[in-house]
Design a protein around this nucleic acid. Structure first.
Lengths: 135, 135
DNA sequence: CTTGACCGTGTACCTTAGTACACGGTTTAT
DNA sequence: ATAAACCGTGTACTAAGGTACACGGTCAAG
């Protein structure tokens, strides 16, 4: 049963976030200004719940809020939705691959450093330190 | 030719960092208080250059400054140097592997999302969005 | 002997993604 | 009618790793 109007606390809980986070997203223009009661309370719909959950899901894929802001711009425009989305995902995938490569390179370096260690590790000279301290 | 005394600007330049960064490292106790001229100017040696470069190199391996702080504590103690260093590197390697696994999982999800896209991407319905919007 | 280039200290500011709180109005239950 | 539990706004704070000023003292060259 989809409710048609939530106040901020119930809304936030439904979205799985803090209500301060909702206000924060509003400030960051990820959510447009909600309608208000006569006394100024924010009112949200179940579409808004979907939007916040969408944001959270995309965020888990490694997108920053500012990237999501741009992404929502593309989605909200509606006509070039699909191409924009595809490009967005493709670009992020590329970034991710670079990041993974970087981490792997570091991993290799760490492994390499470890291999230089002598069997008796109570020595005063540490080859790892020597390696990192050169010139 | 190793100079025996640098003032902060020359020192920072030699280390490849900003001089504010040097002061910052001092505040964070990564560098001990340097000796001073009679008028209070900081004086550094080429050993200090090595130390900062060491910090930078280790930082590039993915260690945070607070980890490096602990690491320097181990190194400065000198007697259990090697064991401490080995453990440090081993632990970081493990963390790194977890991080790589996480990123790979996301990469797989992105690839999966892309595959759902139709050949003609000018459609109004975008399967990526549909996938991410499901409640 | 004065100008510019240093140096000192302390503090504010930056980014990201929020969290926390204080002060005051509103709504709901008793 | 009054207290609890909401809501509003604005501001400050968090972590990490710095950067950027402002204000004042110092040092070297002309």
């Amino acid at each position: 049963m989809n409710k048609l109007s939530y106040k901020i606390s119930e809304f936030a809980e439904n979205c799985g976030v803090n209500k301060e986070t909702i206000r924060y997203y509003e400030r960051k223009n990820l959510l447009q200004e909600p309608s208000r009661t006569s006394t100024g309370y924010r009112i949200y719909s179940s579409d808004d719940v979907k939007r916040v959950r969408f944001i959270k899901r995309v965020q888990e894929l490694g997108f920053s809020l500012s990237e999501i802001y741009k992404l929502l711009g593309v989605i909200d425009q509606d006509n070039i939705r699909c191409q924009g989305m595809y490009d967005f995902v493709s670009q992020k995938e590329e970034e991710l691959q670079k990041q993974i490569e970087d981490l792997k390179r570091v991993e290799t370096m760490l492994k390499d450093l470890k291999q230089r260690c002598p069997d008796v590790k109570q020595l005063h000279e540490c080859p790892i330190i020597e390696m990192l301290i050169v010139d």
